[in-house]
Amino acid sequence: MEKIIVLGIGNQLMMDDGIGIYLVEQLAKRDHPENVEYLIGESDIDYCLQQIEDASFVIILDTVCTGLHPGDITLYPIEQLHEKQPLDLSPHNVHLFQSLYLQKDRIQGFLIGVEPHEIKFHIGLSAPINEIWRLLLEKVQSMIEDLIKNESAE
């Protein structure tokens, strides 16, 4: 059975920059297949890389700044982030995504990015993100389930 990692990255001290961590905390409490492990990587990219070394499929949850509306979700194949997306999409991605790109023949996966409302020093999510939190959580869970189902079918 292949190992699948859902990795939340971000910084909870910077409001909506912690979205990936908050999502992983909530999703880990829900039912999920045995081969799926939910991990919090925060902004320690070396720790993240160490944790995903023996995974074959990785789903990263993070804040992405694309200019869309707060709470909008975008999906990016990891192997395309390095080639086609600007590396300033997320403050955490340069080292992580470059490393994953170099391992693209061994590790497949996706970045699920959530557009923030506000990133500044403050613990907790912004009011606009809190207002849609349940819907956001359900959408991300559904996306993860679909990605895992499609990966398992291949």
Rank of each mutant, 00 (worst) to 15 (best):
M1R: 10
E2Y: 07
E2S: 12
I4Y: 06
V6H: 03
L7Y: 08
L7V: 09
G10E: 04
M14F: 10
D16P: 02
I19Y: 04
I21W: 03
L23E: 06
V24L: 07
E25C: 04
E25I: 01
L27W: 10
R30G: 00
P33I: 10
E34R: 09
Y38S: 03
Y38Q: 06
L39Y: 06
I40V: 10
I40D: 03
G41W: 05
D44M: 08
C48W: 02
C48T: 01
L49N: 10
Q50T: 13
Q51Y: 01
Q51K: 14
Q51I: 02
E53I: 04
E53A: 14
E53G: 05
F57C: 09
F57L: 10
V58C: 08
V58F: 11
V58I: 15
I59C: 08
I60K: 00
D62W: 05
D62T: 09
G67T: 06
G67S: 05
P70E: 09
D72C: 08
I73H: 03
I73V: 15
I73P: 03
Y76P: 01
E79M: 07
Q80C: 13
K84E: 14
Q85R: 12
P86E: 09
P86L: 06
P86Q: 08
P91I: 10
P91L: 06
H92C: 02
H92P: 06
V94L: 15
V94T: 12
V94H: 10
H95L: 15
H95K: 15
H95M: 14
L96R: 05
L96M: 14
L102K: 14
K104F: 07
D105Q: 14
D105E: 15
G109M: 08
G109W: 07
I112L: 13
I112E: 05
G113E: 00
G113V: 06
P116Q: 07
E118I: 07
K120T: 12
F121R: 11
F121W: 14
H122L: 12
I123P: 02
I123A: 10
I123G: 01
I123F: 13
A127F: 08
A127K: 13
I129L: 12
W133A: 07
L135E: 15
L135N: 12
E138L: 13
Q141I: 03
M143P: 01
I144K: 10
I144N: 09
E145P: 01
D146Y: 10
D146N: 15
L147P: 05
I148K: 07
N150F: 04
N150C: 07
N150Q: 11
S152P: 00
A153R: 02
A153F: 00
E154Y: 12
E154F: 13
